[in-house]
Amino acid sequence: MSTHTSTWTVTGMTCGHCVASVSEEIAEIDGVESVDVTLESGEVVVTSTTPLERVSVEAAVREAGYELTS
């Protein structure tokens, strides 16, 4: 099975709790294997079994209370 890596940018995160919230919500998307969030840059790297649709990632980030910028 192949894996896909996608990189996104999230704004509004200010602490470890923010990182945990974003990670948890994105991890609930079907096929997501890992989520690596860098607080300082807002970069989120997601490894999944299938390519992720922006709408799914954006919904998860909004559920956590933040905005997806790219």
Rank of each mutant, 00 (worst) to 15 (best):
M1P: 15
M1A: 15
S2E: 06
S2D: 09
S2T: 09
T3A: 01
H4D: 11
H4G: 14
T5E: 06
S6G: 15
T7E: 10
W8T: 00
T9N: 12
T9Y: 08
V10Y: 06
V10S: 00
T11Y: 03
G12K: 04
G12R: 04
G12T: 05
M13T: 00
M13L: 06
T14H: 06
T14G: 06
T14W: 01
G16W: 01
G16H: 10
A20M: 11
A20T: 09
A20S: 11
S21H: 13
S21F: 08
V22P: 10
V22C: 12
V22N: 13
V22D: 06
S23E: 15
S23Y: 07
S23C: 11
S23K: 15
E24T: 15
E25K: 15
E25S: 15
I26Q: 01
I26M: 04
A27Q: 03
E28N: 11
E28H: 11
I29A: 02
V32S: 00
V32H: 05
E33G: 04
S34I: 06
S34T: 11
V35M: 10
D36P: 07
D36T: 05
D36Q: 07
V37R: 09
T38L: 09
L39F: 04
E40K: 12
E40S: 12
S41H: 08
S41K: 08
S41V: 11
S41M: 09
G42V: 07
G42R: 01
E43N: 10
E43V: 14
E43C: 10
E43I: 13
V45S: 05
V45C: 05
V46M: 04
T47V: 13
S48H: 02
T49L: 02
T50W: 02
P51Q: 09
P51K: 11
L52V: 08
L52P: 10
E53S: 03
E53D: 06
E53T: 07
R54S: 14
V55T: 13
S56E: 01
S56D: 03
V57E: 00
V57N: 09
V57R: 10
V57G: 12
E58P: 05
E58T: 01
A60V: 05
V61H: 08
V61K: 08
V61I: 12
R62P: 12
E63D: 05
E63G: 07
E63T: 03
E63M: 07
A64I: 02
G65Y: 06
Y66L: 02
Y66F: 04
Y66N: 01
Y66H: 01
L68D: 09
T69I: 14
S70C: 15
